[in-house]
């Protein structure tokens, strides 16, 4: 395995929800164009960590964030750059698919339109391109004008993934993207991640150990707001060092 570059460097990240210390001294180097899986049981701060990465934490006035998150040599937590530009570098996929209240076509075109590209011909081509990338084109090409909510959950989640790709991000952030889906749809999403990883750095939050085993290149294991152990997937699964990790992998964690 060749030496990997770092896409995101997180230094001493601390997050408080009011008085509650949700994330404690987080330090991670997320490798470029790999799938990094953040693993841990519910409520351990995985989602918060993900939201820090594109500063959606800004939306909630009771959350305080300290530390550094360095992307492309710039600390995005204290950046002067417009937050919308920072967010545009990352596609976000949430637990439940939340298609925008528009038709299928416009769900994809939305990101392009708000970044100023409005030519009909160009949009048509890009919409087709992105829908093909997520293997949805064949299923929806005859009903692009239907509301996105008429799709099945699995299709909606793929649509949301494509929507995230339209703004040409370097990074995909995914928060338990398959937890609401049936096994077939889950597989489809996982395969998409594996296909996309040559172009994108993926950060995936999950509580499913098997999913992590299937697709992770790098694993971060969290417990109650702290990182217990992190490392390349092989090492992490085959040769864990910490007692907590071992018991989690054995399935006896509490």
């Amino acid at each position: 395995m060749k030496a990997t570059e770092t896409e995101i460097k997180i230094n001493n990240l601390n997050v408080f929800h009011g008085n509650h210390h949700t994330l404690k001294n987080i330090n991670i180097e997320i490798p470029k164009q790999k799938i990094t899986v953040i693993l841990g049981s519910s409520g351990c701060g995985k989602t918060t960590l993900l939201k820090c990465l594109n500063r959606l934490t800004d939306l909630y006035s009771n959350i305080k964030v300290n530390g550094e998150i360095i992307i492309n040599g710039e600390d995005i937590l204290h950046s002067k750059e417009d937050i919308t530009n920072i967010r545009r570098k990352m596609g976000l996929l949430s637990q439940m698919p939340y298609p925008l209240p528009m038709n299928i076509y416009n769900n994809i075109a939305y990101g392009l339109k708000i970044s100023g590209r409005k030519k009909k011909k160009y949009l048509n081509k890009r919409v087709e391109y992105y829908l093909k990338q997520i293997n949805l084109w064949e299923e929806v090409k005859d009903r692009l004008k239907d509301p996105a909510s008429s799709l099945s959950l699995g299709q909606q989640q793929r649509l949301c993934l494509a929507r995230g790709l339209t703004v040409d991000p370097n990074i995909i952030l995914a928060d338990e993207p398959t937890s609401a889906l049936d096994p077939v749809s889950s597989n489809a999403i996982e395969e998409l991640f594996l296909n996309l990883k040559q172009h994108y750095t993926t950060v995936l939050v999950t509580h499913t150990l098997r999913q992590a085993k299937r697709i992770a290149d790098y694993v971060v294991f969290m417990y109650l707001g702290e990182i217990i152990e992190q490392g390349p997937a092989d090492e992490f699964f085959n040769n864990p060092k910490m007692e907590k990790t071992k018991s989690y992998l054995r399935g006896t964690s509490n």
Partner: peptide
């Protein structure tokens, strides 16, 4: 999450 989805697209 719907708000977040739109914001994360750079809106």
């Amino acid at each position: 999450e719907l708000k977040e989805a739109s914001l994360s697209l750079g809106a």
